[in-house]
């Protein structure tokens, strides 16, 4: 029996991109992990937190703490949600030492998917095959809050048949930003169109990222621009053979 790993698939994957969650489970199981899905999970609370509603975010964060109290490892297909839990839960409970202690214990157990594979599972070659030219979009929170840059690239480098072409500029935001995408839709649209231009310049057929929300923004803009470049989560690429 392998090490137990709990999935936190995030509300967006649960509701909109379920195949990302399934792909993540497949990859982890193939590596010998025993994967479970705590059914009471919902959201990390980031939408409320980023919108200034801290009391509401705190309620959702508490629910998360209760749900994953006993999970030794929590793997998440999103850099942004991981950063919310690993960095901002502490901001929410800084006046509540008891909950803060629970948060600090939790912080050590949450992992963004690619980080879990390279750091905890210690793998780079997951045995995947994916015949395509791809480019990789760094989600801002994975990149800047979690410092994830090499892990997904090391994993992609070992995928058979895959050619990676880097974006230039590489570290620009796609303009999603949660409610920002609708509160400042015109501005967010301008940002993603710049991203789409950069993607098209690479000649890649597929855009890969660690964050479903960035991918939703980018896919929506690609589709609006009439492009047939597709978006995929890293887990979906790594689950291909």
């Amino acid at each position: 029996m392998g090490q137990r790993v709990s999935l936190f698939v995030t509300c967006i994957v649960d509701q909109l991109f379920p195949t990302v969650g399934l792909a993540m489970a497949d990859v982890l199981e193939r590596l010998g992990f025993e994967v479970d899905f705590p059914e009471s999970q919902t959201c990390c609370g980031q939408p409320a937190f980023n919108s200034g509603y801290r009391a509401e975010a705190r309620m959702v964060a508490r629910h998360f703490l209760d749900t994953f109290e006993s999970s030794p490892f929590i793997v998440i297909p999103s850099g942004s949600c991981t950063a919310m839990i690993a960095h901002h839960f502490a901001d929410l409970f800084h006046k509540d030492p008891e909950t803060l202690a629970r948060v600090h214990s939790l912080e050590k157990r949450v992992f963004e998917f690619s980080t879990f594979l390279t750091q905890v599972a210690g793998v780079e070659d997951v045995g995947a095959r994916f015949d395509d030219i791809v480019t990789f979009h760094d989600g801002c929170h994975a990149l800047r809050e979690l410092g994830v840059k090499d892990a997904p690239r090391r994993l992609l480098a070992r995928v058979r048949g895959l050619e990676l072409r880097e974006l230039s500029p590489a570290e620009e935001c796609c303009g999603f930003g949660g409610t920002f995408a609708v509160k400042f839709s015109e501005l967010s649209g301008a940002m993603v169109r710049t991203k789409v231009e950069a993607i098209l310049r690479t000649g890649a057929r597929t855009v890969v990222s660690l964050d479903p929300s960035c991918l939703m923004q980018i896919q929506g803009a690609l589709s609006r621009a009439g492009s047939n470049v597709r978006t995929m989560h890293l887990a979906e690429v790594l689950a291909s053979r």
Binding site: C140, H141, E145, E171, C173, F180, A181, K183, S188
Partner: peptide, 8 residues
């Protein structure tokens, strides 16, 4: 609120 919170 006029920020995607990209952190740059």
């Amino acid at each position: 609120f006029a920020s995607s919170l990209c952190g740059a």
